[in-house]
């Protein structure tokens, strides 16, 4: 890049904007996180470990991670389908569908939770269809999965869609001319190209599901050991004035968030290299 070689003080505002950015990030983002980590650090390793491995904590992690994994699996498949259909075909309602995909991002999670619990209640629109089949969603783990699924629908669609759009047609045509079947074109040409974006979308979707709170608390019923997610356990510990436990649990969730941030950064690097190599 040419700008790399330019005198960096040619443009004005370096000190001002960098100063404002760092001060603001320091006060608004880093200081509270630091305070929480200090609180956790004060616990000592032994107490931290006891909180982190308590049966109720482990159950909450199992439920949270398990539900997030199922939600991500669904959204991986559904998101890929939506992205494919939106990019590849022209059909009535395509633009509307494209806009609607972002609804879960635009709709507050409390509204989503309220709506889902009402839809799946015994006499709700969905509940009355499922109840005769013996399928209960509200106040079960299925409810958690439903809530997590709804709130993370857009991730895979929005990461895969631009890559599919940029996919050069000539590559596919070449494969066609060389006698590749439809399936071969997809598995050998298209799939390897969209894979990094697809995985990035899945990681983002999984991370969002791990941290989801608003939608889940409405529908989960919040029974310890059965439908209690980590975010809710943190909330309950705060309510009980058990601050050490809340700090420890929140710090673990923060650690997981950092890992996903790291993972998505690495994945984006992989994707960039992939794109460069193909050019």
């Amino acid at each position: 890049m040419a700008s790399r070689r330019r005198d960096k003080h040619l443009l004005p505002g370096f000190g001002l904007t960098l100063g404002v950015t760092m001060t603001y990030l320091g006060i608004i983002v880093l200081l509270p996180i630091l305070a929480m980590l200090l609180k956790t650090g004060a616990l000592g390793w032994e107490q931290f470990w006891r909180i982190a491995t308590a049966p109720r904590t482990l159950a909450a992690y199992r439920i949270t991670f398990g539900s997030a994994a199922i939600a991500t699996l669904f959204n991986g498949a559904f998101g890929l389908l939506l992205a494919w259909v939106l990019v590849r075909y022209e059909f009535p309602g395509r633009r509307l569908l494209d806009a609607l995909v972002d609804l879960p991002f635009a709709l507050p999670t409390a509204v989503a939770g309220l709506t889902l619990v009402t839809l799946f209640s015994a006499n709700g629109w969905y509940g009355q269809l499922l109840e005769p089949l013996g399928l209960a969603v509200n106040y079960t783990q299925a409810g958690i999965v439903v809530a997590m699924t709804f709130t993370s629908i857009p991730f895979v669609v929005r990461t895969v869609q631009p890559v599919l759009e940029d996919l050069e047609g000539d590559l596919e045509e070449a494969a066609w001319t060389l006698g590749a079947s439809r399936l071969q074109v997809f598995t050998r040409v298209i799939w390897p190209t969209i894979l990094p974006a697809f995985i990035t979308g899945c990681v983002l979707s999984f991370a969002r599901s791990l941290g989801e709170f608003g939608a889940v608390v409405f529908i989960a019923g919040n029974l310890p050991g059965l439908t209690e997610i980590v975010s809710l356990l943190i909330y309950i510990r705060l309510d009980e004035y058990n601050y050490p436990a809340a700090a420890a649990l929140a710090s673990i969730l923060l650690g997981v968030a950092f890992l996903t941030l790291l993972a998505t950064n690495l994945l984006q690097g992989w994707q960039l290299r992939y794109v460069e190599r193909r050019k």
């Binding site: 929480m36 609180k39 991370a207 989801e212 809340a246 700090a247 929140a250 923060l254 968030a257």
Partner: peptide, 17 residues
């Protein structure tokens, strides 16, 4: 960072500040 942190964690962090 705020994008990847659970909102509950954000609230807890402010409480401990």
């Amino acid at each position: 960072i705020p994008f990847s942190v659970s909102p509950i964690v954000a609230g807890v962090a402010y409480l401990f500040l």
